[in-house]
Nucleic acid binder design. Structure first.
Lengths: 142, 142
DNA sequence: GGCGTAAGTTGGATTTTCCAACCCACTGAT
DNA sequence: ATCAGTGGGTTGGAAAATCCAACTTACGCC
């Protein structure tokens, strides 16, 4: 039996290794340089090198040279990388609710002025998308 | 410099290891037994044993005995586990859009009848929560 | 010249992971 | 009663990934 084919597995194949998402979190927060990413995540430099290369190869990040002499780079998000924002939001939300103890280390405020409480809704009808309100529409026909 | 304290890191401490989220995906899909989870994810049995124990210890899953002789168990989601649904949805959405090639292996239909296209919105105002519409509201005061 | 910073590389020890094989308790068919 | 099959693991050894500290290169500043 081959394992189930699934976009969650595919996604994790790209960003599912340790440090990948934390490195991306830093880029989202505006920290784009190797040393700072290493310090803020706690990843060792060699592993971080490999992760960043993989994320660049996968088209999630781009490496921009912002100085030629000496050569200096920064990592910036591609469209694909920016699209991971929702994943990070939900992961943060779950961590806030069920893992983090004590005061929350980071709180987002939405442009409407409220502290952000994210909800996942169906783009069509605007109603919340819970696991109960979803049914499988297609199976692989193989 | 200590690494940044953050709910994303805390969340990944619980579900960030390989196979954890895929095992949870199976439980969401109604596959609750060890052998089937192993087969559908591709995880080796020893690693899966450790992952499931950790998820139970973290309060994400519960192990229910459904037969005494022979002892047989199934894994069921707790509230905390059910709350991971949003994370999985967004991960699937990103995988669909940026990683999976060819036809999508799985499509969800919302109760409104439409194929689900999930959006993350602010619970307060209902507007979409993009990275541009968010600002940091609090920093650790330490 | 010496110090500091950025962005890695390298080497070796330690952990994890993988995989196949094994085990035990039971069930159901012959 | 034996015999294959299933569920849920455990064990052992090989392979891969990770961690950490030290080293490197290439500059800019004083």
């Amino acid at each position: 039996m081959a394992p189930r084919s699934c976009s969650i597995a595919n996604a994790l194949g790209v960003v599912g290794e340790r440090w990948s998402l934390l490195a991306l979190r830093e880029v989202f927060l505006g920290v784009t340089r190797f040393d700072q990413i290493a310090a803020n995540t706690g990843a060792s430099r060699d592993v971080l090198t490999v992760r960043l290369k993989k994320l660049v190869a996968a088209g999630v990040l781009e490496k921009h040279q912002y100085s030629e002499h000496p050569p200096r780079h920064e990592y910036v998000l591609t469209d694909s990388g920016r699209a991971l924002h929702n994943v990070m939001l939900m992961l943060k939300e779950w961590g806030d609710a069920y893992v983090t103890e004590g005061p929350l280390p980071l709180v987002w405020e939405h442009s409407c002025g409220a502290v952000l409480e994210p909800r996942v809704v169906c783009a069509e009808c605007g109603e919340e998308a819970t696991s109960e309100s979803l049914t499988r529409a297609a199976e692989p026909t193989h």
